[in-house]
Amino acid sequence: MRRPLALLLWLLPCVGLPMGATTVYKCTGSDGKVIFQDSPCGKAQRQQTLDLPDVATQPAPVAPPQPSATTDRADAAPTPPPLEPAAPLPRMYACIRATDGKAYFSGNGYPEPYLAPFGMLGAVQMPLAHAYGPAGGAGISAPEVNRGKITPGLVASNYVWVQDQCRPLTVQEICHALQDAYDENARKLRRAFKSDRPPLEQRDNELRAQLGNC
């Protein structure tokens, strides 16, 4: 009795064949018993062969292509700029200008003294009659008339040495001042021409590094 081909295919995985076998022999005895083997059948058996592909010659599975570093990444999210390494916070001082009382920030807590007109300090209100009067004054205020009449004694008596007063900022105040400076520099950078950008970009990197410690 001939067995259907489907039964043959179902039985093939159960046959212990060596890895290099390419031909399977179907041997049918006189009693109708079927045996599958890798060697030719006996003389008393009816033989049929089935050719199978060699396992060793099977093509290896192809791995899916991996994205290359040069692959176009138009659809990928933009890579953020690298963070600048944190830099130590600078020493900063809040100073008051001696001549007009205006506040400003400085990296120097001991500004150099400078000469300022005594009248600008608001300590003494000197009337014009005293400044230009006959009692040792400079005369009338017209520059062409006063040439040669301003003496060293007159200058010394109306100019004094002054120095701005400063105090060190706290860490919180320094961070606030650095953030203001960064915002102002960023506004200049957005409006700057290409030739004017390098110093602003350098300042931007410095401020970002310092703000890393805030």
Rank of each mutant, 00 (worst) to 15 (best):
P13V: 07
D31T: 05
K188Y: 13
D180V: 02
A103V: 10
A63L: 15
G42S: 08
T170R: 10
P199G: 03
S39Q: 14
A116C: 12
P53K: 09
C95A: 14
P168Y: 11
S157M: 08
N158E: 14
L89Q: 05
Q179Y: 09
G133K: 00
P65F: 13
G148M: 03
V155F: 12
P40Y: 08
A123N: 15
G119E: 14
Q202Y: 01
I35K: 13
R46A: 09
T99W: 04
Q172V: 14
L11V: 08
Q202E: 12
P67V: 15
K149F: 03
E201D: 12
Q179I: 01
A192D: 12
H130K: 09
A177D: 01
L17I: 04
Q45R: 13
T79M: 12
P18H: 08
M1Q: 07
P152M: 11
S39M: 02
M92Q: 02
Y114G: 01
R203N: 04
E206I: 15
A6F: 01
K43V: 14
W10A: 07
F118P: 00
P80S: 09
K149C: 00
P18R: 14
T49N: 02
T49W: 00
Q125H: 03
V124C: 08
L128A: 07
V55F: 13
L169D: 01
Q47D: 03
Q47P: 00
T170G: 14
L189V: 03
H176N: 14
T79I: 12
Q66H: 15
F36T: 05
K194V: 15
P152Q: 11
V145N: 11
C166W: 11
A76R: 10
